[in-house]
């Protein structure tokens, strides 16, 4: 390794110097490009993950709200149902289905929120769903409110509607609204958990851009240095040799070409000097 470094630092041939210079530029381009691609790939994956998580969350919340609303609709319909057994059975079954759907969605939400910083949002939602479901179940079984039970037993439909309406407004509706609010809280909670990931995304995006920017700056500096060195060590000496040779041919001034380097140009200068000497002797 040390030998390799030493060899690089002591390159004395023009050809190798130029080759190493271009290889370095190529390596820099490749490295910065590869790193940026790698980071952009990560940005892309993170963005996709966030979008999927966001969509899943919206879908889940939508399912819960649909199920809850369906359940609510069935409750209202049951309250004003004609009292026929098959009709009540139909609405009760649909209500049970909505309850099951709500429970399933809630359990899924709870599982999703388990590994986040705010699992309590899903827990409170599950608790609330359980409450509203219990209330619904009790109503369907006819175990809710003594006046309603009595009105049902007596077949007093007017009293039944009045009492059911009172029960719905006083007991069921507040629980329903609380559940809607819990679903909204859950949605906000999930969005908040995505916040750090979005921040991380902007951080990753910056990390993808910064290396390229720095590499560009380094490349500009290297190109300027390259120009400077090529001009100083190769262009100027060639111009000097050319001028000196011209002076010799035109005015017979002695050939002189001082070199700032120790590579092939020195050999060229020496060979031209030999040729000039031979020419002078003839």
């Amino acid at each position: 390794m040390i030998k390799l470094l030493k060899n690089i630092f002591t390159i004395k041939t023009l050809n190798r110097r130029i080759r190493v210079a271009f290889m370095s530029l190529l390596l820099l381009l490749f490295f910065s490009g590869a790193m940026s691609l790698f980071e952009l790939e990560r940005v892309s994956k993170d963005t996709e993950d966030i979008l999927i998580a966001s969509k899943e969350n919206v879908d889940l919340a939508g399912d819960m709200l649909t199920a809850l609303n369906e359940q609510n609709d069935m409750m209202i319909t049951l309250a004003v149902a004609s009292g026929r057994y098959d009709e009540i059975k139909h609405y009760s079954d649909r209500c049970e289905e909505s309850m099951a759907q709500l429970s399933r969605s809630t359990a899924l939400a709870q599982r999703k929120m388990q590994n986040t910083d705010t699992p309590e949002a899903a827990d409170s939602l599950a608790y609330q769903v359980e409450r509203v479901n219990q209330l619904t179940r009790a109503y369907i079984r006819g175990e809710v409110h003594l006046p309603i039970i009595q009105a049902r037993e007596q077949g007093d439909t007017t009293a039944l509607v009045v009492y059911t309406h009172k029960w719905y407004i006083d007991e069921y509706r507040p629980e329903y609204e609380k559940t809607v609010s819990s679903i909204t809280d859950y949605m906000t909670g999930v969005h908040n958990t995505l916040g750090p990931e979005v921040n991380n995304l902007s951080h990753t995006a910056r990390r993808a851009v910064t290396p390229v920017f720095i590499s560009l700056v380094v490349m500009v500096v290297i190109v300027i240095m390259f120009y400077f060195f090529v001009y100083h060590y190769y262009v100027r000496p060639v111009l000097r040799i050319n001028r000196s040779l011209g002076d010799y041919l035109t005015y017979k001034k002695p050939f002189d070409g001082e070199m700032p380097c120790r590579d092939e140009l020195v050999t060229l200068r020496d060979r031209i000097a030999q040729l000039v000497n031979k020419q002078s002797k003839l």
């Binding site: 690089i8 390159i11 370095s24 820099l28 390259f226 060195f229 060590y233």
Partner: peptide, 16 residues
């Protein structure tokens, strides 16, 4: 490290 090394390598290769 790579960028800094490359930046420093250039003058070491070229300058006498």
């Amino acid at each position: 490290s790579f960028l800094t090394s490359l930046l420093g390598l250039f003058p070491l290769i070229f300058a006498e």
